[in-house]
Nucleic acid binder design. Sequence first.
DNA 1: CCAATATTGAGGTACGTGCCTCATGACCTA
DNA 2: TAGGTCATGAGGCACGTACCTCAATATTGG
Lengths: 375, 375
Amino acid sequence: MRGNGALDLLGRSANCATEQEETAAGDSVSDEAARRRVTVHDVARAAGVSLATVDRVLNGRPGVRSATAEKVEEAIKTLGFSRDLNASLMARSRDLSVVFFIPDGSNEFMDALAEAVSRRAGPALSDRMHLSTQRIRALDTGALAAGLDALDPRSCDCAVIVTSEEPDILAAVEAATRRGIAVMTLVSDLPGSNRRHFIGIDNVAAGRTAASLLGRFLPQGGTVAVIAGSLHLRDHLERLEGFRQILSADFSTIDLLGPFEGHDERQETEALVANLLAENPKLSGIYNLGAGNAGLVSALKISGRAGNLRVIAHELTAPTREGLRNGAVDVVLDQNPDGEIREAIAAARALALGTSRTVATDPIEIGIFLRDNLR
Amino acid sequence: MRGNGALDLLGRSANCATEQEETAAGDSVSDEAARRRVTVHDVARAAGVSLATVDRVLNGRPGVRSATAEKVEEAIKTLGFSRDLNASLMARSRDLSVVFFIPDGSNEFMDALAEAVSRRAGPALSDRMHLSTQRIRALDTGALAAGLDALDPRSCDCAVIVTSEEPDILAAVEAATRRGIAVMTLVSDLPGSNRRHFIGIDNVAAGRTAASLLGRFLPQGGTVAVIAGSLHLRDHLERLEGFRQILSADFSTIDLLGPFEGHDERQETEALVANLLAENPKLSGIYNLGAGNAGLVSALKISGRAGNLRVIAHELTAPTREGLRNGAVDVVLDQNPDGEIREAIAAARALALGTSRTVATDPIEIGIFLRDNLR
DNA sequence: CCAATATTGAGGTACGTGCCTCATGACCTA
DNA sequence: TAGGTCATGAGGCACGTACCTCAATATTGG
C-alpha cells in the first residue's frame, strides 16, 4: 500500500500488453463486455420522446397521452429494456421491503421459516432488501387479513403469506394487490386468488415418495398406519393421495391402516400412536404426514418398539432430528424452509422489476433425510 | 395512467394518514428504515480524512501513509461499513465476471453443471454479473492450469474450478490469487491451496446414506456390490468410506462385494455389471458410487433382473432418470449441480466485497431421488 | 380565435462508489 | 534553503434511475 507508485506505472504498461492478449485470446469476453446495457436513455431515443416522458411511463405517473405511452412501451419491448433494480432502489434511497406473515403457535416448521427469514435479513440488506416477519396466530384468518389490510404500499412492496384457503384472505389479497403490493403464497397455495407467485413443494410427490420408500423398506409386506394432522388441510390431503396412489399401484402386499387425525398436536399424536402400537402388535410401519412429531417419537420410545418398525415423518425439526438420531424415525421428508425463503426473496426481487405478470423460481426440492445425511 | 391527477392528490393525503398508522403500529419498520446506510462519507468523517483517502485505502491505491490507512480501517470496522457492491459495479460500469472451468468429455454431470451456468447467465446479468464457461478436457490439468494462467484480473474477478489434486493446479491457483483473482473449487476440494471457498456435498455422508438406504431395503441381509469410477478419486474414496462405515456398524447381515472399478465409462461399467450379475445369481444390491450409469442400467435391463435387486447410483442424469423410471434403479443420490452453481454465484459476490477472508454459503444438500419425486 | 389545460421537453439533484485532476502542504535531501 | 517527493484534500464526472421544477408546446373548449 506504500511506495508502489513505480509499481503503478509498471502495472499500467503491463495492462496495455495484456489487453492485446485478451482481445486476441478471448473474443467472446470482449464482445459481450462491449454490448452495453440498455438504459432509459436508449428507450427515450428509440421512442422519440424525452427522458422525462419515459420516466413518467415507467413509474406510472400521470400526464402522458396513451399514444405516447404506447410508443414508449413498444420501444421498451423492442430494446428489451429492463429497469436496473439496484440503480432504482439506490435512486429512491429506499429498500425493497418484504413482509412475511408466518403462523405462530407450536409448529416448529413455522419457527424454522421465521428463523430462515431473520437469518437472511442481514445479508439481504446489502442487496437493499428489508425483510420483516409478522407472526400470526395459527389459523386466525381474521388476523392475517387484518395484517394484509394494514400494509402501506409505501413501506411494503411484497407480502408473503402462509395460509389456508379462506374467503376473507382471498379478499385481503385482492385488496393488497390493488394497492400495489405483490402477494406471494408459501407452503400452501391459494388458487383462484391473484397472488403473484407460489413457493412450495409438490405434496402429492412427497406422499408418493413416502410410499415408495416404505414399500422398499418392507419387501415382505405388512401393515402401515397413516397419521394426518387434519383431513381438512390441502397439503395433508395431497400427501395422502400420493401415498395411497403408489401403495396400491406398486406395493399390494402392504395394508394401509387409517388415516388417523392427530391434529398436529404433540399430545394427541402421542396418545394416538401409543394406542396404535398397543392394538397392533404386528404393525410394520407408520407414515406421519402431519406435524406432532414430538408425540410420535415419544410414543415410539416408550413402547420400546422404536427401530422395529419403519417410520417416515415430515419436516426436519428438533423432534424429528432426535427421532432420526435415536433410530425411532427412518426417514424425514423435508420441505426445506430455508430454500423456500431464499426463493421467496428472489421472487420478490423479480416481482419488483414488474416486467412480467408471472415469475419463475427454482423449484423447491423435497429433502429426504436419514440419520446419515443430517445437515 | 391518464387523468389521475386528482387520484394522485388523494393518494398523497391518504398516505399522510397511513404514515401515522404505520408509526404507531410497526415501530420496528420505521426504526430500521430510519437507520441510514453507512457510506464512504461516514467513514471519511469518522476517520477524520477526506473521501479521496478513504477511496485510496478501499481500493488499494498507493499514496496513503500506513498510520492514516489504519485510522480508516478502524473507522470501517467501528461503523461496520461495507462497500455497496451494486453501486461499486455501477460506478465502474463493469460487470463482476466469473469464469467457470468445467471438465469436458462424456460426463453428463459436468454437462449439467455447464448448463446450470448458462441458465443463470441471463438473469445474473441484471445483477451485473457476467458468467462464462470454459470446458477443459477431463483430467487435463495442464489445460486447466493454462486457462487459469491466462486469466486477466481486469476481465475476470473470480474463477471456479472442478479439479483433482495436482501440483500444477495448486501453483496456478496460487498465481491467480496473487494476481487478484479469487479462485473457488467446485465438487471436489483442493486442500492446501489458497482457494477462497469450496462448494460441494459431503461425500462421506453420501456414502453413509447409500448404505443406510440399502440396509433398510434389505432387512433379510444379502450381498451388495460396490462399483467406483476410480479409487484414485477423492470423492469416490470418500463415498466408499462412508458406505463401509455404516454397513459394518449397522447392517452386519449385508456382505460387501468389491469395490470394482468401472472408470466412469459406459462400456466398461456395462461389462462389469453384466459379469457381476452372471457370476452372482443371488446378488441383492448394487451401489455405483461413480459414473458410467448408462452401462449399469443397460446391463441390468439385458440381464432381465432389473427391479429384482436394489440399486443406488449417483447424479440425476439422463441414464439414471431412465433407470428410475423403468425400475432398474431405486435411488439416485444427486449433488444438485444447479444449487452448486447458485451458491458459487452467491459466493463470488460475497468474495467481491472482499470484507473477510472466508465466505459463508448455504450448504449443498445431497438430493435423494426416487421415481416418485423426480423433478 | 383565445384562454385554459394537458402534454412534453430540458435539465437539475440525489443515491453510493470509482477514478481522475489539480492544488496544497509536509517532509526529506543535497 | 531550494528542489524534490510524498501525503492528503477538494472537487468533478460517471454509472442508471427517481423525482422535481420550469418552460415550451399541443390540444381542447368555449
